[in-house]
Design a protein around this nucleic acid. Structure first.
Lengths: 129, 129, 129, 129
DNA sequence: GTGGTCTAGACCACC
DNA sequence: GTGGTCTAGACCACG
């Protein structure tokens, strides 16, 4: 399963699902035509309320990322990669701008920020490799 | 006035006040012994309800950042700089790690991230100068 | 119900709730994972305003005693017993030291104090049994 | 000077003055006929608002502890010792009962309480001798 | 004037 | 249903 939920991190669960699906499409873990788990199945796997999954899927359909195929279920829509990729990039850019703004306002110098970024990047790359 | 509120950015108003006071103490815009605006005054300035300001101030007292002087008002507590500084740094570090993790996972290369940071930093510094 | 409020004893109602929850956790009337009454329910039971309960619960969350489970309610946090126990003990110790200091300064002998304690203890134990 | 104020301990300043005067009379640091400092003088010594001193003195007059002598000032009233002594004792008893109730409710055994009292008593007697 | 507390009622997001 | 936030207005103690 490509979706992992943290119910205690403050972000709404349905939001976490939405982002992770978009994310998976963006990096082609999910390709157009691939099916996603049914609402019931995913809800059971993640031990959450089916309503919550349904809400996430509904939102993904509205965005055009998923499409319903009668008698089959939900699958990734044809042209989904392009907007997912763009959305990801915009999201990262926005959050990055946010945290940089806060860092600069809080009186950190660019030097300090750069070194923070350097150390964090290495820490993350190290732990995920 | 060193506090600015954005009522529509999703973060609770009282939380924005708390963080901005902590940050102001951390970068010594506010020093121990300095008084902060009275509840009513700040509420009027920011055009919000006094209860909201009171809530922020009360939280800052529980954190030991502010202390009440009876019948006079609230002032920055003596040993406040050290924890504020630490908190600010921890907060920036954490949020930075978060967004970097997301960026790397979303397939951006370190080159791309660095250039994003560069452009955002200049944009922010440009607009605030 | 494990919470009883005295609205006239000078201590703020939300503070009474906070202390009683901490104490209940400390003596394991409430264990990690146990749910506490919902804001509305407790407010109704105690015949007070829901905001007052919410304020107490929020403070307990900041202390790490309670944690919110989205859409479900509030429960006692995992590692809550240890700090609650310590806090209870520190609180009793501090108040005891306070009153003993006052007693000794006011010229009571240790004999008198001991007999006072004896009679009060029996009075309390008698009335609660 | 026999009065010391702690403006940050939560107890109202005028209350601290009242108790300390009663206390001084009870243990005969102040005897009937002794004058107490004038409002202005005491206010200056303690660096507090004269209103606060006046309020404390007013309350002490109502209790019959102090009496005004025209052209002279305030002095300790004739029969003041008896009620001051009693009040002290009642106050200690009440606070003791309070903290014992809390201790017992919080699940401490009488053994634990007794040993706490023992250690605190020794600590206090040690430090004050 | 100051902060502290409580009530009442509203709206929101989430499950 | 749940908690979270905000507004409005009141009363209190303190200096």
């Amino acid at each position: 399963m490509f979706i992992h939920i943290d119910p205690d991190n403050g972000v709404a669960i349905y939001d976490q699902i939405v982002h992770q699906v978009v994310f998976a499409v963006a990096r082609e873990t999910l390709k157009p035509g691939n099916r996603v788990p049914s609402v019931r199945e995913l809800a059971k796997d993640l031990a959450i309320n089916p309503n919550t999954v349904a809400r996430a899927y509904q939102q993904l359909q509205q965005q055009g990322v998923l499409q319903a195929v009668r008698g089959v279920g939900l699958q990734v829509a044809e042209g989904a990669w392009e907007p997912c990729h763009a959305q990801r990039r915009a999201r990262v850019r926005e959050r990055l701008a946010d945290v940089l703004r806060e860092a600069l306002q809080s009186g950190l110098t660019r030097q300090e920020i750069t070194s923070l970024i350097e150390s964090e990047t290495q820490r993350i790359e190290g732990s995920s490799s």
